[in-house]
């Protein structure tokens, strides 16, 4: 255990107010650790704003700003261009936003940033709902998951964020998971080296919003990958790569049953979901083959 008052080792302070078992915290620490001090960060409101700080205190040692929910990509653009106008080509500009701030309200500014090919790293940590405002459904909430605005389970599928990024033909987009940290860190490094926009969509299990034992975050994250509910992939220079192709998908039942947000699913709902996950995975494999 670190002493809270001791100088923290990395770029993020030791004591932060994220919930116990929060995957977002692990992602945040790792991303900053790979990118290093020559980075400017933009954080919108949402759980990641816990790192912006409160009052006189901040949890980060790099410069940053908490801008608006929908304009993370726009602010990153401005910062990058401001630096370029002063001849600074070395500083990394990082947007670090939740799923709501990305696939819902922030999608327009993200699309603009990608279309203009701004050299910005955009990380979307995906806890699959609006957690900071009390677990409301987002367009990244998966089919069947219950939130405070989808109490009976979300009736529609989630948006495909890397697919959207790929449609902009940006040089690098990838998904990642806290269960595979080496892979995650490698992808952050690749993003840093990308000449143009890069997008990382990182699965972020959230014990508070998904209703599971905080000790099980990594297990849940791994189960999501092993069942095909979260596909680890990269879109690099126009080509898709599936990072850990699965010969066989584990049944989704155990993954779903470990989380309170899927409590309301009946056996036949789970069977339906199983079909949907397999179909989606199969289609993804086909897409990757078309490279």
């Amino acid at each position: 255990m670190y002493k809270i008052n001791a100088e923290s080792k990395g770029l993020v302070s030791h004591g932060v107010s994220a919930c116990a078992g929060c995957a977002l915290e692990l992602i945040f620490r790792n991303v900053l650790d790979v990118l290093g001090e020559d980075t400017i960060i933009v954080i919108p409101p949402g759980c990641s704003a816990l790192f912006s700080g409160y009052g006189k205190e901040t949890a980060v040692k790099i410069p940053g700003a908490q801008m608006t929910l929908e304009a993370t990509a726009a602010c990153c653009t401005g910062i990058k261009r401001g630096l370029l106008a002063q001849g600074n080509t070395h500083t990394t500009v990082l947007g670090f936003a939740g799923d709501g701030g990305t696939v819902d309200i922030g999608l327009q500014s993200l699309s603009g940033m990608m279309e203009r090919m701004e050299k910005v790293i955009y990380v979307c940590y995906d806890n699959e709902a609006y957690m900071n405002t009390g677990i409301q459904g987002s367009s990244s909430t998966p089919l069947g998951a219950s939130t405070t605005t989808t109490p009976a389970g979300k009736p529609t599928k989630r948006k495909d964020l890397v697919g959207i990024a790929a449609a902009h033909d940006i040089p690098y987009a990838a998904t990642a998971s806290v269960a595979y940290l080496t892979d995650l860190r490698k992808k952050v490094k690749k993003a840093k080296e990308t000449d143009g926009p890069s997008l990382l969509h990182i699965h972020a299990p959230c014990p508070t919003g998904w209703r599971y034992d905080p000790a099980k975050t990594i297990e849940i994250a791994r189960a999501a990958v092993e069942t095909g509910c979260w596909i680890l992939c990269e879109f690099e220079n126009g080509k898709w790569v599936i990072n850990k192709p699965l010969k066989e998908l584990k049944p989704v039942g155990a993954y779903l049953k470990a989380q309170g947000r899927f409590n309301n699913l009946k056996e036949h709902d789970i069977a339906q979901l199983q079909i949907q996950v397999r179909d989606h995975y199969a289609r993804f494999i086909e897409k990757a083959k078309l490279n």
């Binding site: 400017i40 933009v42 700003a65 801008m67 608006t68 304009a71 726009a74 602010c75 990153c76 653009t77 401005g78 910062i79 261009r81 401001g82 630096l83 106008a85 002063q86 500014s109």
Partner: peptide, 10 residues
Amino acid sequence: SAAAAAQLTG
């Protein structure tokens, strides 16, 4: 957003 953020860089 972009203008304000750019101006913050100096």
